[in-house]
Every structure is written in structure tokens, then in C-alpha cells.
Amino acid sequence: MSPRSTPEERREHIAQAVWAVMSERGLSAVSVRSVAAEAQVSVGSLQHIFPTRADLLIYSAELMIDRVVRRIAAEDRGGDPIDATLRLFAHLLPLTPESRVEMDVNVALIAESRALPRLEAIRDEAHRALAEACQRAVERVAPHLPPAVVERRAARLHALTDGIALHLLHAPPGGDQRWALDLLRQELEDLADGDGPAGRRP
């Protein structure tokens, strides 16, 4: 970390150290001291920015979500609705080393959320955001569906996305991951055609 780093750059550098400790050694290994060592800063310098372990975890969770949101916001939404939706949803799956660490950290933070109400709020907000993304995806891909069916298919897409993400997290890194987006594409194509559970045309 450069001495000329801005305050926000220093905060992000420390958050990345939190992710590294958590990903390599687990949530229980995260402490002010272990993160300071990983970030190569003094404990005093770190505590000046994040006085407690809870502060570290909360900021790290917020930054992780913000990074995903920024990647999605930068994605091209033009072209075929199914292709555009798949490009967006690819950012929600652990398909790259970066997003795999984010997912790994996210799962660990969910386990910690009961002890930290602020983390619980962040977890719930992320869940709502994904639910809304799924709703918009169904409306975009299958505008012919009535509202009640859109709601059911959005819940199905949400559950499918969560399930695929966990399967990818358990799979060895570097394996064939094409099945994940293929599965999502099939779901979206079924929606567009009006096929699948509760989605058939009348």
C-alpha cells in the first residue's frame, strides 16, 4: 500500500486482506492482528481505520457487494434479452478467481450475521437485490407471463442461481464451468418459450 494512497484505497486494501485471511484460513482467523499482518500495516494503523473486528467485517461485506454491483452496472444490457441476462448473472456466480473468493467470503459472512445485526441487514439487502434482479430478468425475457406467474418463476430463478453458485463453490477451481451458464440459459429459454413449471402458455 502506497503512502500516497487515499483513505478509501487504504480501506479497500485492508478489506482485501480480510478476504484473503478468510478465504485461506476461515472466518475464525480474522482478527485485527491477522488482518494487519496480511495487509502489511501496523495494528495501530489498522485500528485507526477500523477500531474493531466487527468494523472490519462490516466494511468488507459492504465493499464486496459494491464491487459486484459496479461490475453489473458496467455490463452491456443491449442485444438479445437472454444473452444480456446471462452476462449480468455471470457476475453473481463464482466463475472467476475473484468472484470465487467473493462467494467464499459471502458464505462465511452469512454464518457470522447472527452475531452482528449490521451484517444481517447487509445479507438481507443482498438477498432482496437478487430477488429483484430475478424479477426483472423474468419480465425482460418473458413479457407474456402474467404477474402471478412472473413472481413464481422469479423465485425459481433466484433459487436456481443460489444453488448453482454453491455447486460452483464446492467444485475444484479451474474445472469445466460451462454447465452453470448452460443451465441458466435453458431456464431463460424455457421462460421465453412459455415452458417449464407454472410457465406454460394458457
Results as ranks from 00 to 15, higher is better:
residue 97 P to C: 07
residue 53 R to N: 07
residue 99 S to E: 14
residue 36 A to H: 01
residue 140 R to C: 04
residue 199 G to L: 01
residue 131 A to S: 11
residue 121 A to F: 09
residue 120 E to V: 00
residue 18 V to G: 06
residue 129 A to M: 09
residue 57 L to M: 12
residue 123 R to A: 10
residue 57 L to V: 14
residue 64 M to F: 03
residue 112 E to N: 05
residue 45 S to Y: 11
residue 27 L to S: 07
residue 55 D to W: 09
residue 165 A to K: 07
residue 130 L to I: 12
residue 191 L to G: 09
residue 162 D to R: 14
residue 145 L to H: 13
residue 172 P to F: 06
residue 66 D to C: 04
residue 83 D to H: 00
residue 57 L to Y: 13
residue 94 P to Q: 02
residue 48 H to M: 04
residue 108 A to Y: 07
residue 57 L to P: 15
residue 39 A to K: 08
residue 70 R to E: 15
residue 50 F to V: 02
residue 52 T to L: 03
residue 49 I to Y: 04
residue 72 I to V: 15
residue 116 L to I: 15
residue 172 P to S: 08
residue 80 D to K: 00
residue 94 P to S: 05
residue 51 P to G: 06
residue 42 S to Y: 06
residue 9 E to T: 00
residue 7 P to W: 06
residue 35 V to T: 05
residue 86 L to N: 06
residue 188 L to M: 09
residue 97 P to G: 06
residue 187 E to I: 00
residue 117 P to H: 09
residue 136 R to K: 13
residue 109 L to S: 06
residue 192 A to V: 09
residue 45 S to W: 10
residue 168 L to V: 04
residue 150 V to S: 07
residue 134 C to A: 15
residue 16 Q to K: 01
residue 60 S to H: 10
residue 168 L to W: 10
residue 2 S to N: 12
residue 26 G to P: 08
residue 8 E to N: 03
residue 192 A to K: 05
residue 73 A to V: 12
residue 82 I to L: 02
residue 202 P to L: 06
residue 105 V to Y: 02
residue 77 R to V: 05
residue 106 N to V: 02
residue 88 L to V: 03
residue 15 A to E: 08
residue 24 E to K: 11
residue 103 M to D: 04
residue 144 H to W: 04
residue 179 W to D: 12
